[in-house]
Design a protein around this nucleic acid. Structure first.
Lengths: 197, 197
DNA sequence: TATATATTATACCGATTGGTATACAAACTG
DNA sequence: CAGTTTGTATACCAATCGGTATAATATATA
């Protein structure tokens, strides 16, 4: 188990830095201090390694997002805040995986890494759309624009996290204290004002 | 000149579909109906081809954005609308380059394509920041948050264009008529409400 | 102790990678 | 016409790519 975890860590680090296609299997095994057959023993192929990486990462992300989505049905603003909070904390603490995921989200549609991340992203979209549908009566007349709102919200989350990461690039440890709840409540407020008109 | 243009077109198409690293020089010259020495005669290297591609594309983008930025100083809302309009029309008409640019924006920082696009993105950021600084008195107290607003605005533009492209994927010809001025004015309004509070 | 199973290393594979040396043809220039 | 620049093709390069056949370990179970 130790070796498998080690490979995943090294691979994530390299994919995050250089991108999937620019990283060779050789480079991964060298940095991990093992040899190729070991990697292929665990993951079967480079693509298999990518899939395992995404499986693990989205499991971590979902374990934060889903509870936040179902914390309180009564107040939309509070739900969106909790989701934003969960999302941002994940982006800060698991920032290598997060920025790798972000890069895949907007990447070319016909290459391997996007094909691998597609189902995970799709279920993330679905969850957020469902979130808006569940609270549609509180948001006034949405007219089937749930999808648009969901995409807008996700874009809003991404942009916020991305900006934050660019600004605090390099600092690894003391990030969490810079993302205050008040700031996030303000941004959710800002996002909602556009929606409820 | 015909051959050079042809190579650039084919390369853009492939980079857009599969990503820079996943496309081989061999594939480009085959699809372009030429041979490798011809490509290397014009661009020197694969990276040189990428640089030329970006140079051309950002020239096209800037020729739309800059005039829009300086159309009218008096009304911020109108300026932001004109920029949004220019940006969206570019995204629709030059959509292959646009989505390639978008993929590079969020891509890994240490690989070649990001290094190549960095200066272009940086000057785009600078222009938008300057836009907000120029109109700061109309937007109330910005407290040096011009950068944050600029990033937010760019994220807003990207998300809008991205959502639009996902929705209308595949249709090549009749896109322009779907991006109405009214819709864009509404979105700018929505964005601004968050800023001026 | 004997056997089975999970890990790991050595050494290798054919295919493809970005890039080039050489030569030849076209076209412009003196 | 002679010479030079521009443009293109054939054939090739070492290096690297993802992946594997083989065999030796370590560990656990019987």
């Amino acid at each position: 188990m130790d070796n498998r975890k080690n490979i995943l860590d090294v691979a994530l680090c390299l994919f995050h830095q250089k991108g999937y296609d620019a990283v060779s299997v050789q480079e991964i095994v060298e940095k991990a201090g093992i040899t190729k057959p070991t990697l292929y023993y665990y993951f079967g192929s480079k693509y298999g390694l990518l899939e395992a990486l995404l499986e693990d990462g989205f499991k971590r992300l979902n374990s934060r997002i889903y509870p936040a989505m179902e914390c309180c049905d009564s107040d939309v603003r509070e739900v969106l805040f909790q989701v934003t909070r969960a999302f941002m904390h994940f982006a800060v603490e698991d920032n290598k995986f997060f920025s790798f995921m972000l890069s895949l989200m907007y990447s070319a549609k016909e290459n391997e890494p996007y094909q691998a991340v597609r189902p995970h992203l799709h279920s993330l979209y679905r969850s957020i759309i469902e979130l808006f549908e569940r609270n549609s009566q509180q948001l006034g007349n949405m007219n089937g624009r749930q999808e648009q709102f969901a995409m807008g919200f996700l874009g809003f989350l991404n942009q916020y996290a991305f900006t934050f990461m660019v600004k605090h690039d390099g600092q690894e440890d003391t990030l969490a204290e810079h993302v205050t709840d008040d700031e996030m409540r303000g941004l959710v407020q800002q996002f909602m004002y556009g929606i409820v008109n």
